[in-house]
């Protein structure tokens, strides 16, 4: 269902609209949530958090601006924020996963402006990546999937996923070097 149709349904028949929204994006939202929750929290927490994502979206429907992103992207962002909030409420320290960290520059940011410009540069760099490299990065750094899971999903070998990840990160690093210049 397209975004415009979903929005109309949510307004005319909220129950049906929410059900359609959940059918369409439930899997993605749940995955984003689950990946951003620590292992100590159980599946019920993930489900409840996912449900809150949809209810938050519906209850703040008037704040949704289509020009600022698709419904899919919007609820992914809500999902991630809610999961991180829940994690913070339940753990003292966020788990550090060295695998995830990818230092792309060692840049010292001295201002918000610099950070915004850097973001644009990184965004541009990620957009310029071909598939499946872009999807690999998204799964690895946004969904938090392991190389093994990504390999299974994209029907590749694990070493292929790791190689592509390294190459993609290298490409981004070069892009940022150009930006610094």
């Amino acid at each position: 269902m397209r975004d415009a149709e979903l929005l109309e349904l949510l307004q005319k028949n909220p129950e049906k609209g929410l059900k359609a929204l959940i059918v369409q994006y439930g899997g993605l939202v749940y995955t984003v949530v689950r990946r951003n929750l620590p292992e100590a929290l159980c599946t019920a927490d993930a489900e409840a958090c996912a449900a809150e994502v949809f209810s938050d979206f519906y209850l703040d429907l008037n704040k949704y601006d289509p020009s600022k992103g698709s419904i899919k992207a919007w609820i992914c962002v809500i999902a991630r924020h809610n999961a991180i909030d829940l994690t913070r409420r339940n753990t003292e320290v966020l788990p550090l996963d060295e695998e995830i960290r990818a230092d792309i520059g060692g840049i010292s940011l001295e201002s918000d402006l610099e950070e915004r410009e850097l973001r644009c540069a990184v965004l541009s760099g990620v957009k310029s990546l071909n598939e499946p490299d872009r999807e690999i990065l998204l799964r690895k750094f946004y969904l938090g999937e392991s190389s093994k899971e990504i390999a299974a999903r994209l029907k590749m070998s694990v070493s292929n996923v790791d190689t592509r990840t390294s190459r993609a990160v290298e490409k981004l690093r070069k892009k940022l070097d150009d930006w610094r210049k």
Binding site: G69, A73, R80, G105, V126, R134, L137, L172
Partner: peptide, 19 residues
């Protein structure tokens, strides 16, 4: 230090749509 993780953490919906 700005990392890729930082970038993906702060993705807004527009940026997410783009990639």
């Amino acid at each position: 230090k700005y990392t890729l993780e930082n970038f993906f953490e702060d993705l807004n919906p527009n940026e997410l749509d783009e990639i």
